[in-house]
Computed example of a mutant assay.
Amino acid sequence: MSSSISEPKPEPLLVPPHPRYEKVRDINRGSFGFVQLAKRRDTGKQVAIKFIARGDKISKSVEREIHNHRGLHHPHIIKFEEVFLTENFIGISMEYASGGDLFDYTVKRGGLKEDEARWFFQQLICAVDYMHTKGVANRDMKLENSLLTGHAKPLLKICDFGYSKSDQNDSVPKSKVGTYLYVAPEVISDRNYNGKNADIWSCGVILYSMLVGQYPFERPEDKAKGVTEHQKLQNVMKRILAVDYKFPKQVKISEACHDIMTKILVRDPNKRLTLQGIQAHPFYTKGLPKNFFAVNEQLKNAGLPPSLQTMQSIDAILQEAKVVPGSDDADLDEMYDEALADCEDE
């Protein structure tokens, strides 16, 4: 008779009790690690903490994620709080948005009315404009990475900078990253591409998906019996390259909405509507507060809060996180064994 023992769930805030944070509950888990809702012991403020195992998982992409996120301070971007170490994990503490994500919000409603979709799109583009001004391309813009506050009229906040690239610190985007239902044609076909132009395409996919309640380049036949995931992927990629999408007849949208969609979802990134063009378009400007653009300009010109964790502190923590506690002794043993072997060979 055999029995299986499941791995105990890691509790980095409980064992031992963390001096600053108290766990509230688990939020989600993925290949990257896991996220927990916690509250600060001193203020009671709730935060979301992303935990990544120390050691090999602390990669260049994790470093980029933290560096790029830290440099962004905007009301429509999840706020970076700090990074810290526990015995077995690095923790990335950030603002908690209690309203879930835009994907679930859209699915539950079977798509959104144009005015509500515009409201979220206005916030999204506002944040992307700020982000691009700061030299960061997200490269994974999607409904699932657009979090919402718990207000009756939710505010949108971009999260997850795991695939982001910075003009100042990173190379030209080459890798085909992102979520395939949202990726721009040039990400599929070109060796080098402009990550900021690709972000604009993904914002167009988000707008379409909010309005229709489904993705522009996915079809019902992709989910038919016998269609493999690889075949589905190939079908979607072909439609993206051909910009093959249309609005269902039952979805009623204005001429302005249709016009902006046709100008964003353009294969040639150099002919795609720019952020400036989007923000000047009648679909986008409808219902905007008078000081909307002035406030965003102030945010783009503002510095980071002086209380923000320093890059020196963050980099020191990242370096320490690459070492798994207890591994030093094993490394010394291995070096000792190798030295003995060398002596025997002499």
Rank of each mutant, 00 (worst) to 15 (best):
S3A: 10
S4K: 11
E7S: 13
P10L: 02
E11K: 01
L14C: 13
V15I: 01
P16Q: 10
P17A: 07
H18S: 14
N28W: 11
G30N: 03
G30C: 04
F32N: 13
Q36A: 15
G44L: 05
K45S: 11
Q46G: 02
K50W: 08
V62N: 03
R64A: 13
R70D: 04
G71I: 10
K79V: 11
V83S: 06
L85W: 08
L85K: 11
S98W: 04
G99E: 03
F103M: 09
T106H: 04
T106R: 04
T106K: 07
R109G: 12
G111P: 00
E114D: 08
F121G: 01
I125S: 02
C126V: 03
M131A: 11
H132A: 02
K142Q: 07
T149V: 09
L156K: 01
L156N: 02
K157R: 05
K165E: 13
D167P: 00
K174G: 13
K176N: 11
G178A: 14
Y180C: 08
Y182V: 07
R191C: 12
K196A: 06
K196L: 07
A198R: 03
W201R: 07
I206T: 02
Y208T: 00
L211S: 01
Q214T: 14
R219D: 13
D222E: 07
D222Y: 01
K225Y: 12
Q231F: 15
K232F: 08
I240Q: 06
D244M: 12
K246W: 02
K249R: 12
K252R: 14
E255G: 06
C257R: 04
H258R: 09
I260Q: 00
L265F: 04
L265Q: 02
R272E: 01
R272F: 01
L273F: 02
I278P: 11
P282L: 14
F293G: 08
Q298C: 13
G303N: 11
P305M: 14
L308V: 15
Q309E: 06
I317L: 06
E320V: 06
A321W: 00
A321T: 01
V324C: 06
G326A: 04
D328H: 07
D328F: 02
D333K: 05
D337Q: 11
E338T: 13
L340P: 09
C343N: 14
